[in-house]
């Protein structure tokens, strides 16, 4: 492996000053599960690594009206957070299938989005949850919405010497559910063929047909029944991973549903619109036609999972229903 110097600053100020000193020769290292692999594969050749492990305050999950996740929070910490599981479910879904426990113990959420892989598991949940990214450099601090953070495969808005200081996620509206599905060939240590996140905020959490969610009824039957309850979708966000050069929002699809009553016919059109907005490519993990077909399927399924999470039917299906 290429030789490099390794610095462990103990304050943000020291870290940013060090980075300013080495500039292009330096790279940040958080958990290192991407950085060390890239150095081994010779796709990254830094002379200096500046570690963020020793800086206090970057590895905390806090909730004070807004959820604050430090960049050094590991995937395992998120996986174990009851608060995130309950109110920010899509993110909990994403971290529990990322890599392996060994990876999740070390890999950080800041690192996951800074690597900016189109397949980054945490990216689409952060998109549907309306995340704001606080960025710090020696000279300034700025905040960008996560939609503006990704610029291309491996590319972000971060300039040399900048780092993520905090991810801020607003508390969802009442009656909100969110879900992420990672389409993968095996259940551990795989990258997604496709990642789909959906967030829905409904105007109520009681429906007459909630028991249908515990059955094996087809989605169309459940939705036909739900139409009678006139459930309004107050907010909707749909995000797709590995469907374009960057993780993306399907904003046209969202627009069709926002403010409208849920129906099977409408969800079909929403899913179809999301397919048209995506620009998937053929790759070793999956071909574009397959990704398009699965976007159509998974947008609808994740919408159903979000609805299930809002309504929380008392009986549960075992094994858990695969929406």
């Amino acid at each position: 492996m290429k030789k490099f110097d390794y610095f462990k600053p103990t304050s943000l100020e020291e870290a940013l000053t060090l980075f300013a000193q080495y500039g292009e020769k330096a790279k940040w290292i958080a958990g290192g599960t991407d950085v060390i692999v890239m150095i081994k594969q010779k796709t990254m050749t830094p002379d200096v690594l500046i570690s963020l492990q020793g800086i206090p305050g970057l590895g905390e999950i806090k909730f004070n009206g807004t959820l604050s996740i430090g960049p050094m929070v590991t995937h395992r910490m998120i996986e174990k957070s009851e608060l995130i599981k309950k109110d920010f479910s899509a993110l909990a879904d994403a971290v529990s299938w990322l890599g392996s426990i060994q990876i999740r113990n070390v890999a950080t959420i800041g690192g996951n989005i800074c690597t900016a892989a189109p397949s980054a598991d945490t990216a689409t949940p952060l998109l549907v949850l309306g995340t704001q990214v606080k960025i710090k450099s020696l000279k300034e601090e700025r905040t960008v919405p996560i939609e503006a953070f990704f610029k291309g495969p491996g590319a972000t808005v971060l300039k040399t010497g900048e780092m993520i200081k905090e991810l801020m996620i607003p508390k969802p509206l009442p009656n909100t559910g969110s879900a992420y599905y990672k389409l993968q060939r095996r259940l551990a240590l795989d990258l997604p063929i496709l990642g789909v996140s959906v967030l829905l905020s409904l105007d109520k959490n009681k429906v007459t047909c909630s028991d249908m969610l515990c059955t094996t009824s087809p989605i169309s039957s459940i939705l036909h029944k739900m139409e009678e309850d006139q459930i309004i979708c107050k907010e909707v966000r749909i995000a797709l991973g590995v469907a374009a050069p960057t993780p993306m929002r399907a904003v046209k699809a969202e627009g069709l549903l926002r403010g409208k009553p849920l129906s099977d016919e409408l969800l079909e059109r929403v899913a179809e619109t999301a397919v048209q907005e995506a620009q998937p490519r053929d790759s070793i993990r999956g071909e574009a036609w397959y990704r398009r077909d699965m976007i159509r399927v998974l947008v609808k399924r994740m919408a159903m999972k979000s609805i299930e999470r809002v309504i929380q039917p008392e009986e549960t299906v075992f094994p858990e229903r695969l929406w």
Binding site: I29, G32, T33, I36, I103, N105, V106
Partner: peptide, 8 residues
């Protein structure tokens, strides 16, 4: 648990 092969 950590993977020591990619841990600095």
């Amino acid at each position: 648990t950590v993977n020591s092969c990619i841990f600095p």
